[in-house]
Computed example of a mutant assay.
Amino acid sequence: MSPLTTIAVRAARAAGDFLLRTGERLHELRIEMKGPNDFVSDADREAERRIVDIIRRAYPDHAILGEEGGAQGEVASHGARWIIDPLDGTTNYLHGLPWYSVSIALEIKDRLEIGVVYDPGRNELFVAERGKGARLNDRRLRASGQAKLAGAVIGTGFPFKSHQHLDAYTETFKAVSRAGCAIRRAGSAALDLAYVAAGRFDGFWELGLQPWDMAAGMLLIREAGGVVTDIRGGDRAMKTGNVVGGTLRVHQALLDTIKPHLGADLPA
């Protein structure tokens, strides 16, 4: 692993180990509501602080974009920016459900270079480096060989924080369901995307995500031989928040199935 990747892994494990320990005393956490169905706890904030401290010690001049801390520092001439979700799946975590993750990505000059998704409950570490492939612990990852939607397992997430695109999403859900695949909604987009890279899911789509939800997972899919785009097939997923990923053929089938049901007001 490169020194940058080593730092990302160290930070992800530090946050994940903290979340595991804190998960044994959830009743002590202070929980706040940031918006409709959108919660933050002491655990989120402390996990992010630990990640940021590790990155700052190694690379004090790098910019950081975190879910809880927002943008920190300016992107300098080297163009390095870390994109962090210290606890993706907060609602699951606060209810003792074992589906949450730590997501850390490094973007250099607007190009994703490193992606790490850590599932502390299963001790599963997904790591991708641009041009060097993706791994789960010590195993090389490859997206599945699924070639069509019929019989595929597809991950998704509901637009639960904002109902702005709920009608469009509901129509896409119905269309994908009718294509004969199994749909799973687990509650951590970062982990869902990592599962596409691992071949556990054959595809994934969701509307209304944030960069920290998807950055690491997007690189994992690409380095595992899959395809990931925005919901109209372009390269603006990090800007629009609408993402589709999967094997080459499943990705295209998802796009073809979803596109007719997108509202005109959905970001292109």
Rank of each mutant, 00 (worst) to 15 (best):
M1S: 13
M1F: 08
S2A: 05
P3D: 08
T5K: 01
R10F: 00
A11P: 01
R13Y: 09
A14F: 05
A15T: 05
L19A: 06
L19T: 04
L20M: 11
R21M: 09
R21Y: 02
G23A: 12
R25H: 15
L26K: 13
L26E: 01
H27V: 00
L29R: 06
R30L: 07
I31D: 05
P36G: 03
P36D: 07
N37R: 15
F39T: 02
F39H: 09
D42K: 08
D44K: 14
R45A: 00
E48T: 07
R49N: 10
I51E: 07
I55F: 06
R57H: 11
R57M: 14
Y59N: 13
P60T: 12
P60N: 11
I64K: 08
E74W: 06
E74Q: 14
S77I: 14
S77P: 01
A80M: 11
A80I: 04
R81T: 13
I84G: 03
P86C: 13
G89I: 08
T90V: 10
N92A: 12
N92K: 14
Y93W: 11
H95P: 01
W99N: 08
Y100V: 03
L106P: 07
L112S: 02
L112C: 04
L112A: 04
I114R: 03
Y118M: 08
Y118I: 07
Y118F: 15
G121F: 05
G121K: 04
R122L: 13
N123Q: 13
L125F: 04
A134D: 01
L136G: 04
D138C: 10
R139G: 07
L141W: 02
R142T: 06
R142L: 11
S144Q: 10
K148A: 15
K148H: 14
L149R: 04
I154K: 04
G155C: 10
F158R: 15
P159M: 08
S162M: 09
L166H: 10
L166I: 11
D167Y: 14
D167A: 15
T170L: 15
T170I: 13
R178P: 08
R178K: 15
G180A: 14
C181P: 03
C181K: 02
G187K: 03
D192R: 00
L193G: 00
G199E: 10
F201Q: 00
D202A: 05
G203P: 05
W205V: 07
E206A: 13
L207H: 02
Q210N: 08
P211F: 04
L220A: 09
G225D: 11
G226P: 08
D230P: 03
I231V: 15
G233S: 13
A237K: 11
K239H: 13
G241A: 15
V243T: 14
V243D: 02
L248I: 12
L248N: 12
Q252P: 04
L254W: 04
T257K: 12
T257G: 08
I258W: 07
L262V: 10
D265V: 05
L266I: 15
A268D: 14
